[in-house]
Amino acid sequence: MPQDPLSHHLTTMAYNNAWANHRLLAACARLDPAEFVAPRSGFFPSIRATLNHILAVDCFYVDAFEREARDEPPHPRIAEFFDVPEPCDNCQAVQAAQRAVDAKLIAYCQTLNDASLSRVVTILRPSGAQHETRTRLLAHVFEHQIHHRGQVHAMLSSTAVPPPQLDEFFCTMDAPLRRQDFAEMGLSEADIWT
């Protein structure tokens, strides 16, 4: 049965997100602890701080998506996701937590079809309730992740660990370049593209 094109694209974006996080965090895991926490130029002051921010925001939005899917009200206290600025003090902790939230985002996207994308997700903000369609909020989440991963990628340039290639996901010709990552993640090309 053919898949709905937009919802399938959003699912591939969730897979791309998980793959890019896997590849970036594998590079960061090779840093010595001092490099992981060293002050760097970026929106957040270190690789650790930036990765923790990506994780916290992902948890925040995935919670909102899951609540909407279950027809539950929005989270009553969003500050809980940000009360501890850097909950993971090492890269291995970030890797485990990010892998878990990435799996939840993929699972959520796999439930979507194009007819359901106009459903509204509500988030309670300090200024009031925010109402966004699934399509807009997912697009926002993916853009947020790409933005901050790019900052970590740039920060890695000034360390002993070279930044990994993160743009080899969508093209068929690049499949051999991601084969090892997919094996480590337990994925296959067929999982994503068919």
Rank of each mutant, 00 (worst) to 15 (best):
M155G: 04
G150P: 01
H144Y: 03
V141W: 02
I146L: 15
I146V: 15
T135M: 12
H140A: 02
S157H: 13
R149S: 02
A139C: 13
H153C: 08
L138A: 04
L138N: 00
L156A: 06
M155L: 08
S157Q: 15
V152S: 00
S158Y: 08
V152K: 02
A154C: 12
H148Q: 09
Q145G: 13
E143D: 14
A139G: 13
E132T: 10
S158G: 12
F142P: 01
A139R: 08
V152L: 04
R136G: 06
L138Q: 00
H131W: 06
S158I: 11
A139V: 12
E132A: 15
E143S: 15
E132K: 13
M155C: 05
R134F: 11
R136E: 14
G150Q: 03
A154P: 05
R149M: 04
T159E: 05
L156E: 04
V152E: 06
R149N: 01
E132H: 13
R136M: 10
H144T: 00
E143T: 15
T133W: 04
M155N: 06
R134C: 11
R136A: 14
H147S: 03
L137D: 00
E143Y: 14
H147A: 04
H131K: 15
I146A: 14
R134M: 12
T133R: 10
R149E: 02
T133K: 04
V161R: 03
T159A: 07
H131C: 11
A139Y: 11
T159K: 03
G150M: 00
V152A: 04
Q151R: 03
H131V: 06
T159W: 06
H153Q: 07
H140V: 00
A160M: 12
A139P: 01
M155E: 03
R149V: 01
T135I: 11
V141I: 13
I146G: 08
T133P: 05
V152Q: 05
T135Y: 09
Q145Y: 08
I146M: 12
R149G: 01
R136D: 13
H140K: 09
T159N: 08
L156G: 04
Q145R: 12
T159F: 03
V141C: 08
A139E: 10
T159D: 05
Q151D: 09
G150R: 01
A154M: 11
H153M: 07
Q151M: 07
I146R: 11
R134S: 07
V152D: 05
V141G: 02
T159R: 07
E143L: 15
Q145D: 09
H148A: 06
R149I: 03
F142V: 05
Q151I: 00
H148F: 07
T159P: 07
V161W: 05
L138V: 03
H131Q: 14
H131S: 13
R136Q: 13
H153R: 04
L156W: 04
A139W: 08
S157P: 08
R149Q: 06
V152Y: 05
E143K: 13
H153V: 10
R136Y: 09
T159Q: 05
H144W: 04
E143V: 13
R134Q: 13
T133M: 08
F142Q: 05
V141P: 00
I146H: 09
H147K: 06
T133G: 08
H147Y: 09
R134N: 11
A154Y: 09
